[in-house]
Amino acid sequence: MSIHADVNTRPPGPGRTAAARLACVLIQPFLSRVVHRTAARHPSLFARLGPHQTTDFLIDPVELPFALHLRPDPEALVFRAVPRDAAPHTGAAIRGRFLLLLELVDAEQDGDAAFFSRDLEVSGDTEAVVRLRNALDDIDGSLAEETAAMFGAPGRAMLARLRRAYLNDTKGQECI
């Protein structure tokens, strides 16, 4: 089933909006740690981004209550959760289920294949998206596992649960 059919693409009601804002506040310290740690461990990815280091990306995991705003500027990194109704205007947007996006970051899935199947949508500056994809794909190892390891055994267990859930979902081809 392509992502356009996901129920969470509908406009949120007032209750969902409040929950989204709270979720954004709670998750922000985690996102800041992740992006700074990734930049420190993988500085080579910035060269592949070229002029798009200062492009604003909206990464939209459709089943989560918020989207993510990324500006991969090594001088002023931005990675923050934003409620969809308050999302900034960005140069490019990438949209798909959260765990698909995670698998793409880790090169466990192929972005072109996800695009062909309509599980992944991109809009805006396509060159920026291609550069980001190539930059992330040149990273050895798993960003998800690096991130999970920051939180020790509970983090790794959470990642394993998420991956199992994703596998179960994709077997049934149902959206969360």
């Binding site: 356009h4 309509r118 949508e121 991109v122 809009s123 396509t126 060159e127 998206v129 291609v130």
Partner: peptide
């Protein structure tokens, strides 16, 4: 070239 490519999503889910 990617710099000349754009994907446009319509309200009905078409692209």
């Amino acid at each position: 070239p990617a710099s000349d490519v754009e994907y446009v999503r319509d309200a009905d889910g078409s692209m």
